[in-house]
Each structure stands twice: as C-alpha cells, then as structure tokens.
C-alpha cells in the first residue's frame, strides 16, 4: 500500500475528485489537534475514506528537556479518536531549553544520547500503549559525534525496542552529504524493525549539500534505492509519498504513487531461477 501526506494545500481538490487515490493518508497530529471548523470538516471527509497513519513533529524525543506528557496525552487522544494505524516520530530534537524551534535538529551521535533517547522512546511507548516507529532524519552536519550514524541508530532501536520508519530519501540525502554508500547503510539496518517507509524529493543547494525539502519530485537514484530497500526487506511495508511544498497537480502525485507501487511489486516478485 502506498499513501500520501495529507496537506491543506490540496485538501479541497482531494475531497472533490478521484484523481488522487492513495491507500492511506498521513498527518502530523500537532497540525490537527484542537482544530475545528473548515479544516476539521475536510479532515473528517478524508478520514471517512482512508486509514490514517501519523507522523509527529513536536514530541522532540531527542531533546535534553523532559518529555511533554500534557502534549503526549493530547496525541494519545488524537490517535484513539482517529483510529490511527501507526504513530511515528523523528530521531531528532525540536525543543531545547524549554523553547520549541519547530524544526528537526540533529542529536549528537553519542552513547549518552543513545541511553537518553532510548529511555524517552520507552516512556512514550509505555504511555501510548503501542510501539512507535522512529524515523532516521536527514542532517546537514554531525554534532560532536563519538559513534557512527549507523551504530547510533541501531543502538537506539535495540535499546528502545521500537520500530523503524525508513525514509529512503533521507538515507540518500545523508549518504550524499556525509559521503557514504547508501546501500551499505541500508543493508546494515535491522530490516525486521522496518514498519513504514517514506519517500520524497529534495533539493541540491550546493556541490556538497542536499536539503530534504519535500518540495520536488522523487529523483531516479532515490527510486533505485527504494527498489533496493524493498529487495532487502522481502516483504510488503506501507510506503508514503511526502510532498509539502511546490505541490503539483494531483495527477502528478498519483503518477508518483503508481510508480512507487510498481517498483514495490517488481522488487517483491520472486526471483526466477533456471533449473537444469
């Protein structure tokens, strides 16, 4: 199944036409909690037609600040009310010194951070009474690292016993920005923990830097990496197309959904061996 990030920019067109027909939709709970009126009506219409996956932005699971259980309680209620299939968050921090920054900052790859973040994830899972999936974020600089990125991620997944949201575009972006092989990186991830995949476009802003904008179409090398990922997985996993800016016509989004579905089906076909 391939879904789409539900955005206000196309909500009205989406509700009124069948041009775009994803298998599910995804939203950030914080963008919809406590919202009524026009947007609530639009959202309810979408919920009547599609299962909901959720992807948080503000929980700040990697923050040095304590977890915000008041907010988490609102998230829990939202997940229950919307019958959300899955809740995921970013392996990053968006709040520090009691101030929200509303963007995703990179956590230092340190052993101390592994223990702190894993403990936070465990607390969130206990509170929500469900496993959560953690997304590997794109990052533009390491911060005081003492571990490699792959060791940092795998240690957290193991210690927290949580699921993994594998954003294939993020791995591509990171492999370019930090000069490593994306396929080798993916091959080292614990594939049994992958419960969800994100796909998106990005923007190259300098010879040595790509920014994860979600504002462009997916490029071929990221599709290739996606095919490799599915071959590694050897099972079907929900896949999401993220498009947050420069939203194209709905038929163009549907084209990308179809392409993702097609690549996934091809990658999952059993290999045909010649027999003598």
């Amino acid at each position: 199944m391939v879904g789409i990030g539900y955005r206000k920019d196309f909500a009205a067109d989406f509700a009124e036409s069948n041009t775009l027909h994803p298998a599910f939709i995804e939203v950030a709970p914080e963008n919809w909690i406590g919202v009524g009126g026009y947007w609530k009506k639009q959202f309810q219409k979408a919920l009547e037609k599609y299962p909901l996956f959720t992807h948080g932005l503000s929980l700040s699971i990697g923050s040095p600040d304590p977890l915000d259980f008041v907010f988490l309680k609102q998230v829990k209620k939202f997940l229950q009310q919307t019958n959300a299939v899955l809740y995921s968050e970013h392996l990053s921090y968006a709040k520090c010194d009691n101030a929200h920054l509303y963007d995703l900052l990179p956590i230092p790859f340190t052993e101390a951070a592994v223990h702190h973040v894993a403990e936070n994830i465990k607390q969130v899972q206990d509170f929500l009474e469900r496993k959560i999936a953690i997304e590997i974020v794109s990052y533009y600089t390491p911060v005081a690292p003492e571990l490699t990125e792959i060791d940092f991620i795998n240690a957290i997944l193991e210690e927290a016993n949580c699921d993994l949201l594998l954003d294939v575009n993020n791995v591509y972006v990171n492999s370019f920005n930090h000069q490593y092989d994306a396929k080798t990186f993916i091959a080292q991830l614990p594939m049994q923990r992958v419960k969800y995949i994100h796909m998106a476009g990005h923007e190259k802003v300098a010879d040595d830097l790509i920014i994860d904008t979600h504002g462009e179409a997916i490029i071929d090398p990221v599709y290739d990496l996606f095919a490799f990922t599915i071959q590694q997985l050897q099972r079907d996993v929900p896949v999401l197309l993220e498009r947050d800016f420069n939203i194209p016509e709905l038929h163009e989004l549907q084209y990308e959904l179809n392409k993702l579905n097609q690549i996934k089906q091809q990658a999952l076909q059993p290999a045909i061996y010649a027999t003598l």
Binding site: P64, Y93, A144
Partner: peptide, 26 residues
C-alpha cells in the same frame, strides 16, 4: 564516553545558535 551533560550542552548550543545566530564552537 562523553558524559550526558556534555551532549546536552552541545544540543543547547546548537539550538541557541538557531535562535540567536551566536555561534560557539561545537
């Protein structure tokens, strides 16, 4: 192994830089 308060301090410095533009070496 880096003590956690040092990791915290680097996170605080990065967040502070994003808010104020004042850079301290990390």
């Amino acid at each position: 192994m880096q003590p956690y308060n040092l990791t915290q301090s680097y996170q605080s410095q990065l967040a502070g830089y994003c808010r104020t533009g004042q850079w301290n070496h990390i």
